[in-house]
Design a binder for these strands. Sequence first.
DNA 1: ATACCTCCCTGTGTGC
DNA 2: TGCACACAGGGAGGTA
Length: 292
Amino acid sequence: MPELPEVEVVRRGLAGWVTGRTIAAAEVLHPRAVRRHVAGAGDFAGRLAGRTVAAPRRRGKYLWLPLAEDGGPAEAVLAHLGMSGQLLVGDPGREREKHLRVRALFDDGGHDLRFVDQRTFGHLMLTEMVPDPFGAGLVPAPISHIAADPLEDAFDEEAFIGALRRKRTGIKRALLDQSLISGVGNIYADEALWRARLHWARPSDSLTRAEAARVLEAAREVMGAALAVGGTSFDSLYVNVNGESGYFERSLEAYGRRGEPCRRCGTPIHREEFMNRSSYSCPTCQKRPRRV
DNA sequence: ATACCTCCCTGTGTGC
DNA sequence: TGCACACAGGGAGGTA
């Protein structure tokens, strides 16, 4: 499942293939893939034709391709991969993937760009850019409300720690709240909490400053480590732009390890249901708080 | 306002 | 063998 490291791997992969190239035509094969583009699939495809793509950018789990100025307002193609979205580049003549949703052809006749998405939680849209509330130039309007992610310069560590400790919720819910910190999903939330030795239900307003800083640092470290090896391909639905899996699954300490021994203390890892999904933790290293 | 719940999707794996 | 169902989960949108 693509979270920050996986999306960053895709961004880097795309950069070498699409930057500076001009889209000749775009084709929407499944309208759900552009459901958030309110003007519709025809408008989306039509307005992409003839536009030149600048270097891909990312914030949290969102990726966007800025489009070169065409006299109108600054625009970008915004992408969210959801659970199973893939952005792939390759020979335009190759076979169509079963879950191909959107395809862009370039005017040089070279590699095309495809959006493939089995579970259709991902989406693409063409959107205007607005000034970044965190001062990093322009960002796509629909994501101007999300926080910076912990791997970008615009991330304000002190502001995050303060907001986290003021919030009245559980630490994991806070880590997954994209308006507080972006880019962290279920896998890296569990991994960061394991590293910081904190239980997911720990009230965020009970965290000491040191604990809050510790879980943030853990999130940074684990996402950085995952990025360095191409991300986590837990269920093989995440691949880079060339269709290759990442290698971080073997380094996961908590996520998906139900019943397997904690590599710190040997206690079997617990799986609990939380927010209609799974939370994995070590019952010895990560003590459940008394009040929940 | 904040906190938290439901719903949208489809392929895979498991149990009967 | 085939069917039913649990499971994976980000974020929009709703309720209290």
